[in-house]
């Protein structure tokens, strides 16, 4: 790995700015089935969303392809926090990369309990999922209300000293205000953005393709939205040196660089793995080449370097 890709995120040294996103790579081992794929090619792996008790998740179909993207409604299927802590975390090869647990609760107290449980483990950081669009209780219901978001982050903060990252929902009016409240409550980092709510309909049966009726839209289709949200959140987070994982439709090194310029310190890759499982090599190499070409010693110099257009007078029409 090229040394110019090293980045510090919430006090954790990452070998690459790439973070594999929660929900896309199971519990860290699944993609290693593919010859040539290695967790050591990414800075961190964010594990599947975990709740206190096991969850079966939603009924099929859970995914559907849409133009330049896909809708998913998995519904937080997971084996529960005790199984994750006792049976999965010990099997992960911590020498390869850093691991982040993603926690989700149906009550504020559950978030607190989960933060406390994972605080006792060797996990590198905790991502608070307050933006899952696919569960009836909790999830995005917390993320779309900045005061509730505050309370969720606050209780997690009270229960762990590990780096806390809050994954923000784009399905809300003012994501920057939400970011501010999460920082106020003690979030060390922010993940921007989770999926956008969407639907696809089978016109023959007149039913939604997705068992849950609606789901989260991801993939290149959402990239421009994710980029703008990253820019908006950065206007707040930079004041506190709270780093962002920029995510949403990243499909190439150029996409990743856009997010970094907009204010992301690290970049999340998820849906792109589904169609190009070895894309991380290309993204790493592409970012590294870009830095060399532009005489930038380290990625951190690029973070938030966006030069906004500033025309003082409107154009004549």
């Amino acid at each position: 790995m090229n040394s110019n890709l090293k980045v510090n995120y919430c006090g954790i040294e990452l070998n690459s700015p790439i973070v594999l996103l929660s929900g896309c790579v199971g519990f860290g081992e699944e993609y290693t089935r593919i010859d040539g794929f290695s967790n050591s090619d990414v800075g961190a792996v964010c594990l599947k969303g975990t709740t206190n008790e096991p969850r079966l998740g939603n009924q099929p179909h859970r995914i559907y392809e849409t133009p330049d993207g896909m809708i998913n409604a998995i519904g937080l299927q997971n084996p529960g926090s005790d199984f994750v802590i006792n049976d999965i975390l010990p099997t992960l090869d911590k020498t390869e990369t850093k691991f982040i647990i993603n926690i989700s609760g149906s009550t504020i107290e559950e978030y607190g309990e989960l933060a406390k449980k994972f605080d006792q483990t060797d996990i590198d950081a905790i991502e608070i999922n307050i933006s899952c669009p696919n569960v009836k209780e909790g999830g995005v219901a917390f993320g779309n209300d900045p005061d509730m978001s505050y309370r969720v982050v606050e209780i997690c903060r009270q229960n762990t000293t590990k780096p806390l990252i809050t994954k923000l929902s784009p399905n809300q009016t003012d994501i920057a205000y939400s970011a501010q409240r999460c920082i106020d409550a003690g979030s060390d980092g922010l993940a921007v953005i989770n999926t956008l709510m969407g639907m696809a309909i089978d016109i023959d049966s007149r039913k939604p393709f997705i068992g849950n009726n609606q789901g989260g839209l991801s993939g290149p289709a959402i990239k421009p939205i994710a980029l703008l949200k990253t820019h908006q959140v950065y206007q707040v987070s930079k004041k506190y040196n709270v780093p962002i994982i920029g995510q949403g439709g990243i499909n190439s090194a150029e996409d990743a660089i856009e997010f970094i310029i907009a204010g992301a310190t690290t970049v999340g890759v998820g849906t792109a793995l589904f169609y190009d499982p070895l894309i991380c090599h290309k993204i790493n190499d592409g970012i590294s080449d870009y830095l060399l070409r532009n005489n930038i010693k380290n990625i951190s110099e690029l973070v938030g370097s966006l030069q906004l257009n500033d025309f003082s007078s409107p154009c004549d029409s």
Binding site: G23, G26, E30, R33, P60, I63, N72, Q77, L273, P277
Partner: peptide, 15 residues
């Protein structure tokens, strides 16, 4: 079943 990753990562294709 519809599949996204087909490698066990996304749990999109369950029965």
């Amino acid at each position: 079943e519809f599949m996204a990753c087909a490698i066990g990562g996304c749990a999109g294709c369950v029965v």
